[in-house]
Design a binder for these strands. Structure first.
Length: 331
RNA sequence: CCGCCCUUAGCUCAGACUGGUAGAGCAGUCGACUGUAGAUCGACUUGCCCCCCGUUCAAAUCGGGGAGGGCGGACCA
């Protein structure tokens, strides 16, 4: 797989394609980042962007993971001390998941975001940004909480992080899109360079196929899940035998979350997927890519129940090292 | 600083005027049906009624105080 393909595969959006093509010409030594609010337990949402980071490393790009302790503080996730403790757990889980320790730089936001130069730039950016714009950028991240001044500062800091971490590329879920667009617009106003962004999709809710998987309620698969938890959660997933399900009665678009998990979590990490099936149902099946599996589900060759069992097995394998790490950390 | 409105189940809200220890829809859980899930049937669960004090035989409801949230307070009309 060539560098451009590694950078863009499974991406929902690439901004801009020309800039990323340029980057792919000579990826060695270039720097890309994702910022995460520290969390004690990684879930599939984190792992989806981590998959992209693994792709980037394979293409020769240096990866920076911003452990965004100051951002989490702004977002009222606890004291800086508490936040840093969970950040350490997060770091350990990322490495267990498969990020290359030699090529991954973990940076605490608080180590540079309180510096004088940064703070001055932040205030300049505050002058250059309307409240309306900052709030719109933050809306996806903020959720239902009442808007505070901290919520307006939050995306402005993300904008500056891209400059201060000396990056060539910003990576994030599609929920980060407005923040990255704000950054692309504002960085030149401070005489800094524009950087491209790559956005991963937001996967559908497991049980309904609608909306987002980790939208507050809903079932989330995380590093904490036992093998049994995984089986139970995957088994209860919405899974019609098709890749584009009909909208529900209220007209909401639906995806097939089981197929999405195969596409975005399983196939990027495994060259071959084996469906173990009793003779009664036709015996084992082997897939080397997502398309073939999706086509078989669509045709009826692969029954959803067998797809689910297989999915749970592979997700379990992906999560196992992180789960073990968590167990160690917690004693 | 001043004024008005809101706070009841996980969510959206009814009930308050005319005190009698709470309801609906959605969600959720469990069965039936499908070799998955959903849909569809059938059953079930859910509450410091924001907090404190007071009135009362009795307070979600009335009175006082407080907290959290929303909105308004130039000019013109």
């Amino acid at each position: 797989m060539d560098a451009y393909e590694l950078l863009t595969r499974n991406a929902e959006e690439v901004v801009t394609d020309e800039e990323v093509r340029d980057l792919a010409e000579d990826p060695e030594g270039k720097r890309a980042y994702v910022g995460y609010e520290p969390s004690g337990v990684l879930h599939l949402g984190h792992l989806l962007t981590a998959n992209k980071l693994i792709d980037l490393q394979e293409a020769g790009v240096e990866v920076v993971i911003l452990l965004a302790d100051a951002h989490a503080y702004l977002n009222e996730k606890g004291s800086l001390e508490e936040i840093r403790a969970t950040a350490e757990q997060m770091k350990a889980q990322f490495l267990a998941y498969g990020l290359d320790e030699e090529r991954t730089e973990f940076v605490y936001g608080s180590t540079f975001q309180f510096d004088e130069a940064y703070t001055r730039d932040l205030h300049t950016l505050e002058q250059a940004t309307t409240m309306n714009r900052a709030q719109r950028a933050m809306a996806e991240i903020q959720g239902d909480e009442t808007a505070k001044v901290s919520h307006l500062v939050y995306p402005l800091m993300q904008t500056l992080d891209i400059e201060y971490l000396d990056l060539d590329l910003a990576v994030g879920g599609l929920d980060q899109r407005k923040v990255h667009m704000l950054a692309r617009e504002k960085l030149p106003e401070l005489d800094y360079e524009v950087r491209p962004a790559i956005h991963t999709p937001i996967l559908a809710d497991l049980t309904t196929g609608e909306g987002k998987m980790s939208s507050s309620e809903g079932v989330t698969i995380s590093m904490e899940d036992s093998t049994d938890d995984l089986e139970e959660k995957v088994n209860s997933a919405y899974c019609p035998p098709t890749r584009d399900p009909e909208p529900d009665d209220e007209g909401n678009e639906r995806e097939n979350p089981v197929l999405e998990l195969f596409e975005y979590h399983v196939f990027p990490r495994f060259d071959e997927v084996v469906v173990e099936r009793p003779e009664k149902y036709g015996g084992d099946l082997t897939y080397e890519g997502y398309e073939a599996l999706a086509a078989d589900l669509e045709s009826g060759e692969l029954h959803p129940a067998d797809a689910k069992g297989t999915l749970a097995t592979y997700l379990d394998e992906l999560i196992a090292p992180g789960r073990e790490k968590l167990r160690e950390i917690r004693g």
